[in-house]
Design a protein around this nucleic acid. Structure first.
Lengths: 140, 140
DNA sequence: CCTTGACCTTACTGTAACTGGAAGCCTTAT
DNA sequence: ATAAGGCTTCCAGTTACAGTAAGGTCAAGG
């Protein structure tokens, strides 16, 4: 399998697959002409990584997961611990974004959105004290 | 005001303030000795940017907001539109993360987390068909 | 006067995870 | 023979900075 076929088989782009080789994540064999050659085992690894990336795991964590994947003596506790850490980070990010969402939608709701310059959003950013600046404090 | 004081006054680091000057966002005056000098107007701008960044606006959008901030003839509709676009992006990101959260916490719940290698998380990543791989499909 | 320490300056590198593009070789079909 | 498409490497760009090095400046103290 050449890189183009490997790309189709894994849902990754050839660019990405080359990048993964560059960082020693999945290193292909080479044909006589210099072309990369991918076996089924390579494809499995790449697919594994693609799925892990889709779940938001960083490349470094993918590397760790991949080595656990290939370790028949792994403890599922280790995998679970990695996943839990990732989950906590995702949850923290969600909370952070929800706070932004609350503040922003509140400001947007109070902006006339017409041709005049007066704008609570701007007032908030410039932090002139205003009714909305005060409201914003309540959001915390 | 030197850059250190400006940093304290705005909550930004000197590095960040220099970076903002490098990208022509807020350009300071210079003293005879080459030191940057910040007026109250500079501080206001920097504070404005700091708040906008805290709300998650990109530097490019901050630039646009800043120019609206300084335009006495601005229409609040324009500000509102920018903010709404940003809010939509935040909301999309929240949904995306919540999907990850759902999938991950589901997988984690079904992982024994003991010393044995069997692990639904790994099964999901390697996409061998399993009860949990099937469960995962239901999550969509 | 000299030193010390706290500032300030520029410039370069590194970060995450790729994507895009240039220049050129290989293969296959017409 | 040539054109199309795929492959190769290498370099640059993305975001928004932070770290570090090498060196100039300033105020205070001995």
């Amino acid at each position: 399998m050449n890189i183009g076929d490997a790309a189709k088989a894994t849902g990754l782009s050839p660019k990405t697959i080359r990048y993964y080789e560059g960082i020693q994540l999945v290193v292909a064999d080479r044909a006589q002409n210099g072309y990369r050659h991918y076996s089924e085992a390579h494809i499995h690894k790449l697919r594994f990584i693609q799925r892990a990336r889709r779940l938001g795991f960083s490349i470094d964590v993918c590397r760790a997961l991949l080595s656990l994947y290939e370790d028949p003596n792994r403890a599922s506790a280790e995998v679970k611990s990695i996943a839990r850490k990732h989950l906590r980070e995702i949850e923290a990010k969600i909370v952070e974004l929800q706070n932004l969402q609350g503040t922003l939608s509140h400001l947007i709701d109070h902006c006339a959105g017409d041709g005049r310059p007066d704008c609570p959003i701007m007032d908030n950013l410039s932090a002139e004290s205003s009714a909305l600046a005060r409201d914003d404090r309540k959001l915390h």
